[in-house]
Simulated assay, not measured.
Amino acid sequence: MRILLVHRNFPGQFRYLAPALVKAGHQVGVLTWEGNTNPQPLPTARYRHRMVAAEGLGGTYAQYADLGATVARAADQLRRRGNEPDVIFGTISWGETLFLREVWPDARHLGYAEFLYGTRGRDTGFDPEFSRHDLPTRLRTLARRAHLMMAALDADGLLCPTRWQASTFPDDLQSKISVIHDGVDTARIAPDPGASYQVPNGPLLRAGDEVLTFVNRNLEPYRGYHILMRALPKVLAARPEAQVVIVGAHGVGYGPGPGEGKSWHRVFLDEVKDRLDLSRVHFVGRVPYADFLNILQVSRAHVYLSYPFVLSWSMLEAMSVGACVVGSDTPPVAEVIEDGVTGHLVDFFDVDGWAEKLTSVLADPAAQRPIRAAARQHIVDNYDLASVCLPQLMEFVTG
Rank of each mutant, 00 (worst) to 15 (best):
L311I: 09
L278T: 13
H265Q: 05
P391W: 08
D329N: 14
F348H: 06
V321C: 12
L358F: 09
L311D: 07
A363T: 03
A386W: 05
E271N: 05
H265K: 12
N382G: 11
A334Y: 03
G257S: 09
E338I: 14
Y383I: 09
L278I: 13
L278Q: 13
P256Q: 14
R280L: 13
L305H: 06
F292E: 01
E356L: 08
D291W: 05
H344S: 04
L385W: 01
G257L: 04
A363C: 03
P308G: 07
G253A: 10
V341L: 09
H250R: 14
L311K: 02
G251W: 14
G343V: 06
V267P: 02
A355Y: 00
V321P: 00
Y254V: 15
T342W: 13
D291S: 08
G259V: 10
H282I: 13
I295R: 03
V341M: 06
S387H: 13
L316M: 14
V298R: 00
G285S: 07
H282Q: 11
D384H: 10
L269E: 02
Y289T: 12
G285N: 08
D329S: 07
A367I: 09
V310H: 00
E271W: 08
R286M: 13
R280M: 13
F309T: 00
M394R: 14
K357P: 00
V281W: 06
V380W: 03
V380N: 00
L269S: 03
H344P: 08
D291H: 14
V351F: 01
D350H: 03
G322N: 03
V341H: 14
D277E: 05
L316R: 01
G327R: 05
Y289N: 13
D350A: 07
V303H: 00
Y307I: 11
I379C: 02
V341N: 09
M394Y: 12
Y289W: 15
S279C: 12
D277K: 12
Q368N: 09
